[in-house]
Every structure is written in C-alpha cells, then in structure tokens.
C-alpha cells in the first residue's frame, strides 16, 4: 500500500504542480523545496486540493507546513494518517 501511495503522490506532483519534473528526478526523499513546492501558498493549496481528490480525504491547510511538504515520504506519512482517520 505504501509504495502505491508514494507513486500516486509522485504522479500528483508531476501532473498537477511540477510538470517539468521527470519521474526519475523525484525520489521519495528528494527535497521538494527545490521544485518550489510549499513556497507559494496558492500553489500549495492547489496541491492539497489535488491530493484530496486523489485520495478522497480532507486535508486542513492549517496543519500543512514546510516540514510536511519536505519530500514524498513526509507527504505519504500524512496521507496514510488521514486515510486512517477517514476509515
């Protein structure tokens, strides 16, 4: 399940936010700040909306900070918790 979640997060990042990233450049621990993730609040909100839609969960933007968006692993950890809360 975890691997599948990582892949889906990577796809959301590539498809919705960072269209210029090649999948091979985006590893689980790649710092997302290098691609501007989390820098712009509007772009961050768009990412959260896309993740909500992908995983059918609700995310409170007040809980989201730069640490949570540090890399795919961190996002996955948060998503898994949210899925657990939802089920």
């Amino acid at each position: 399940m975890n691997e599948e979640i990582h892949v889906r997060i990577r796809n959301v990042l590539i498809d919705k936010i960072q269209s210029e990233i090649r999948p091979e450049d985006l590893k689980r621990d790649t710092p997302l700040i290098e691609f501007g993730v989390g820098v712009d609040s509007i772009a961050t909100l768009e990412l959260l909306v896309a993740l909500e839609s992908e995983f059918q969960i609700t995310i409170d933007e007040d809980e989201v900070n730069q640490e949570l968006l540090e890399n795919i692993d961190c996002i996955a950890e948060y998503i898994i918790k949210r899925i657990e809360v939802s089920t």
Partner: peptide
C-alpha cells in the same frame, strides 16, 4: 475567482 475555483474542487466527504 481563485477561492471559488479551489472551493469548487475541494473534496467533500
């Protein structure tokens, strides 16, 4: 408009 778009796309349980 940005807010309206985000609200329209926000997942609701």
């Amino acid at each position: 408009p940005f807010m309206l778009n985000v609200l329209a796309e926000t997942y609701l349980k």
